[in-house]
Amino acid sequence: MTDELSVIELILGASLTVKFVMATLVAASVTSWFMIVQRVIILGRANEELLDFEDRFWSGMDLAQLYREGSDAIEEGVDITGGEALFRAGFKEFSKLSRQPNMDAEAMVEGSRRAMRVALMRESDRLERHLPFLASVGSTSPYIGLFGTVWGIMHSFRGLATSSQATLAAVAPGISEALIATAMGLFAAIPAVLAYNRFAAKADALLNRYESFVDEFSGLLQRQSYAQKRGNSQ
């Protein structure tokens, strides 16, 4: 195997600029794969958590009880995210406001809704983190690779101009070496673009479900606050 052009040899023989381009692309590719796998785990988990939490929430269980269970879990060191975090933010605010004397029902619901919106923002931040990086890798790494290729080809043709014998063998290794940069750029870009599209859609769907949960929950709180108010006034 010594007499064939190995890819590794080609890479090692590349000029400094091309090497730098290749190193950038490898780093981008590794990082984007890292983020892809991380997103898969986080989004998959968020989906499961939401399904699980919705089951518990609509099981008819006492909401105060649900809140207490969450508090216990936090004490054990479990991170609460997703739908349950929204619920806790809303419920906490609502119970705080309801303890205030002469509280308007409308203001109570509005306050808890605001708290949930803040939690929702935090969730959307968590779900969509790193997605811009994937988008950048997807859109720029082909260009970076192309730059490396053009640079490499430029140099191999310049070498051709100075050599007395213009043979294909004089330029072919240089071009082959330069083309590796484009291949690397595409190798980094394709998974990144695919992953970005998929994860953006997935995160969007999850956030929509969170939002509808917020609406449902504030409807529930509204009903309860009016019932409470009526009870107080009678």
């Binding site: 794969w33 890292f34 785990i41």
Partner: peptide, 14 residues
């Protein structure tokens, strides 16, 4: 789980 596995997979893929 969140950092180790992705790092491992990313390196493995390459």
């Amino acid at each position: 789980l969140i950092f180790g596995i992705p790092a491992l997979v990313a390196v493995l893929v390459h």
